[in-house]
């Protein structure tokens, strides 16, 4: 079942890393939870108490079918229903770059979560750099297949950018797990150049 889930998710290594953080009885909030399949897995396999937030009506209907409680939200929600630290983990998987104000969202999620897990797409990857350098045009990759003018990813950044932002917001990076395509050693050594993304575990300083 778990294997089948990840196979369905098209090699979402970031979700595997995030799932390892979830222990029985944990309260987990997933912002931009999609069809709720991941939360369902966390509920059924990890014994977590889950809540999703999602903007699309179709996705919400899928969450309901998956038996996952879900609230319609554009994530600009101030999450004022949640007391400080009332969730063990707040998940933000490959969503941050679509937000109007990623900094404000990060502030909110480390407020309501004891920990936050952010899976981040790295625009500092060598493919992106080479495309920009050699062709003089905005990079397009398998992860970011859009044109510059129609992309929902309005706030792309590099791993180094993200670390800087966390520091600026007084957020501690508790754990950082770079995700590579081919070169595991280089990815581990120089994530900003060779990791396609990274999972950050954050907490309020």
């Amino acid at each position: 079942m778990v294997e089948a889930f990840y196979a369905d998710q098209n090699d979402r290594r970031d979700l595997e890393i995030i799932a390892e953080l979830v222990k029985p009885g944990h309260r987990v909030l997933d912002l931009g939870c999609g069809d709720g399949a991941f939360l369902r897995m966390l509920k059924e396999q990890h014994g977590a108490e889950v809540l999703g937030m999602e903007i699309s009506q179709r996705r919400i209907a899928e969450c309901i079918a998956n038996g996952v409680p879900v609230i319609q939200s554009d994530l600009d929600d101030d999450l004022d229903f949640a007391e400080n630290g009332s969730f063990d983990l707040v998940i933000l998987s490959q969503t941050l770059q679509e937000m109007r104000r990623p900094d404000q969202l990060l502030r909110r999620i480390v407020r309501v979560g004891k920990h936050a897990a952010v899976s981040f797409i790295n625009f500092g990857h060598i493919h992106c750099r080479l495309q920009l350098l050699l062709t003089g045009r905005m990079p397009r990759t398998t992860q970011i297949p859009y044109q510059w003018y129609n992309t929902p990813n309005i706030h792309l950044g590099t791993i180094r950018d993200f670390r800087h932002l966390c520091d600026h917001l007084d957020i501690n990076i508790v754990q950082e797990t770079p995700i590579g395509m081919r070169f595991p050693l280089l990815t581990a050594k120089m994530p900003n150049l060779f990791a396609v993304g990274s999972v950050f575990v954050l907490e309020k300083r």
């Binding site: 009506q57 919400i60 209907a61 969450c63 409680p69 319609q72 004022d80 229903f81």
Partner: peptide, 15 residues
């Protein structure tokens, strides 16, 4: 919805 969430009720909401 917000009042139910504050009580940690299981709630789903769609407009």
């Amino acid at each position: 919805v917000n009042a139910l969430l504050k009580n940690r009720c299981h709630v789903s909401f769609c407009e």
